[in-house]
């Protein structure tokens, strides 16, 4: 479902990826690990076409970075749920409206929006928070809202960028378990993290390490 082939990417003179090759299959659960600043976020941005490779190509589903038309990018992004490192929750609207944004964008009907948001909110334990403003929630709760927004539109791929970033170990575990649940239901999940502890706890999952401008499959000894 995802293919990176001979991908080169650099910011001005700083090389991030050089001949990066990898494939991720449908319904995979995959950790993307590497030190801070190694290029995990850049990798994800290449995946949702916020950045394009300098050479080589990125393929996701039917989309190819070398042939994609700018107008197709919104379509592509609607197939991907993204949990951003900084959550990107909108502070001018409550939790319900935050979760509903992708549904409004895809022009769902009001009733179907309500139903989908309530379903997701009850799954993620957010039903009592729907009228709250994001800034009134704890970090863990905000993270769950971000996940709810990412999966409300049934994406085929869920990307989570440092989803355990500022959370305590207990909540981090819960979040990863939640992502695994989502994966079990058929969504491909890609989790970028620099938290090796958490990866060790779920070592049966595929682990991709970014190192020396490339990506490698690694195994973790428990």
């Amino acid at each position: 479902m995802i293919e990176f082939k001979n991908v080169k990417f650099s910011y001005d003179n700083k090389v991030i990826f050089d001949n990066l090759n990898l494939e991720i299959m449908k319904e995979d659960f995959c950790f993307l690990v590497g030190e801070s600043g190694i290029g995990k976020s850049t990798f994800l941005k290449l995946l949702y076409f916020d950045l394009l490779p300098k050479s080589g190509y990125v393929k996701f589903s039917i989309y190819d970075s070398t042939t994609i038309d700018k107008k197709e990018i919104p379509e592509l992004r609607r197939k991907i749920g993204i949990v951003f490192q900084d959550f990107k929750l909108l502070n001018d609207r409550n939790v319900f409206e935050n979760i509903a944004v992708p549904l409004y964008i895809t022009l769902n009907k009001n009733e179907s929006i309500k139903k989908k948001v309530y379903d997701i909110a009850s799954k993620l334990g957010l039903i009592n928070y729907l009228k709250e403003m994001p800034y009134d929630l704890s970090g863990g709760e905000q993270q769950r809202v971000a996940i709810a927004r990412a999966i409300v539109n049934d994406p085929v791929l869920l990307i989570a960028d440092e989803p355990t970033g500022n959370l305590d170990p207990f909540i981090s575990n819960e979040i990863i378990k939640l992502l695994i649940d989502i994966n079990v239901q058929g969504t491909t999940v890609l989790v970028a993290t620099h938290n090796f502890e958490i990866v060790k706890r779920f070592s049966d999952k595929r682990i991709l390490q970014i190192k020396d401008h490339k990506a490698f499959d690694v195994r973790v000894k428990v």
Binding site: P74, L90, V101, I105, T106
Partner: peptide, 12 residues
């Protein structure tokens, strides 16, 4: 921030 987020969530 709102514009960026909308864009990343697939808004035209």
């Amino acid at each position: 921030k709102i514009i960026e987020t909308f864009k990343l969530l697939g808004a035209r």
